[in-house]
Computed example of a mutant assay.
Amino acid sequence: MANQQMIENHLRDVNHVPKFDGTNFREWNFELQMIFQQLGLLGLVDGREGHTLPEEETKAF
């Protein structure tokens, strides 16, 4: 139940973000960056953290 409430709170945090319409990139981008920073996800989203890719499997044919 607490997890569901946390998800709902985060959804309310994005209500003020304008929908991206192709002309408002600066405002849209800034608002999303602030939300990601508030949630502790900015480093993950911009690639500074958690940047490990799975190793490719090599298959012998």
Rank of each mutant, 00 (worst) to 15 (best):
1 M>F: 00
1 M>K: 01
1 M>T: 01
3 N>F: 01
4 Q>G: 03
4 Q>A: 11
4 Q>L: 11
5 Q>P: 01
5 Q>W: 02
5 Q>E: 05
5 Q>D: 02
6 M>L: 08
6 M>R: 08
7 I>W: 00
8 E>H: 10
8 E>I: 07
8 E>V: 09
9 N>P: 00
9 N>V: 05
10 H>C: 07
10 H>I: 06
11 L>H: 04
11 L>I: 07
11 L>K: 12
12 R>C: 07
12 R>Y: 09
13 D>I: 02
13 D>P: 00
13 D>T: 05
14 V>Y: 00
16 H>Q: 09
16 H>R: 12
17 V>K: 04
17 V>E: 02
18 P>G: 03
19 K>P: 00
20 F>I: 05
21 D>K: 09
21 D>M: 03
22 G>E: 03
22 G>Q: 03
23 T>G: 00
23 T>A: 02
24 N>H: 08
25 F>I: 03
25 F>N: 01
25 F>K: 06
25 F>V: 04
26 R>W: 01
27 E>W: 02
27 E>A: 05
27 E>Q: 11
28 W>V: 04
28 W>I: 04
28 W>L: 01
30 F>V: 07
30 F>E: 11
31 E>V: 03
32 L>H: 06
34 M>K: 15
34 M>A: 10
34 M>Y: 00
37 Q>P: 00
38 Q>V: 01
38 Q>G: 04
38 Q>I: 02
39 L>Q: 14
39 L>A: 12
39 L>S: 05
40 G>D: 10
40 G>E: 07
40 G>K: 09
41 L>V: 06
42 L>I: 10
43 G>I: 10
43 G>P: 07
44 L>V: 10
44 L>E: 10
45 V>L: 14
45 V>A: 13
48 R>A: 12
49 E>A: 12
50 G>C: 14
50 G>R: 15
51 H>W: 11
51 H>K: 15
51 H>T: 07
52 T>Q: 15
52 T>L: 11
52 T>C: 08
53 L>S: 14
53 L>D: 14
53 L>M: 15
53 L>E: 15
53 L>R: 15
54 P>G: 09
54 P>Q: 14
55 E>R: 11
55 E>V: 10
55 E>L: 10
56 E>N: 13
56 E>R: 14
57 E>L: 14
57 E>P: 08
58 T>G: 04
59 K>H: 14
59 K>S: 09
60 A>I: 13
60 A>N: 12
60 A>C: 08
61 F>M: 06
61 F>P: 09
61 F>N: 06
61 F>W: 14
